[in-house]
């Protein structure tokens, strides 16, 4: 599956459009990570637990989008956008969307 965030796949031509495909996930951080983050917060710097958590969640959202595209018979997704919003206390929603296409 080819992914880009521009309107085309450079070097290939789009032969068919399948429309919008999306993937999303809502994740909460667990208490252990929260406590570790509070401790790390004392001296500042990267909160590795949270970075990993968000990376994992984005990957999952992306996988869901890819699965949807595959179901439609696409072999690429173009114009991908990411969005993050906090839907509840301590939980964030990760949303990814794009256009499924077939390229040759």
């Amino acid at each position: 599956m080819l992914l880009t965030n521009i309107e085309e796949i450079p070097g290939k031509t789009i032969v068919e459009h399948y429309g919008l495909v999306t993937g999303s996930t809502v994740r909460a951080k667990h208490v252990g990570r929260d406590i570790m983050a509070s401790l790390k917060n004392l001296v500042g710097g990267e909160l590795k637990g949270y970075t990993e958590l968000l990376e994992d969640s984005r990957k999952q959202a992306r996988e869901r989008m890819i699965a949807q595209a595959r179901e439609l018979g696409a072999n690429a997704v173009v114009n991908i956008r990411f969005d993050t919003s906090s839907v509840a206390q301590g939980a964030s929603e990760l949303y990814v969307y794009g256009t499924a296409v077939r390229v040759e």
Partner: peptide, 9 residues
């Protein structure tokens, strides 16, 4: 690429 970064106390 992503990072979560925090400020010190």
């Amino acid at each position: 690429g992503s990072v979560v970064i925090s400020i010190d106390y």
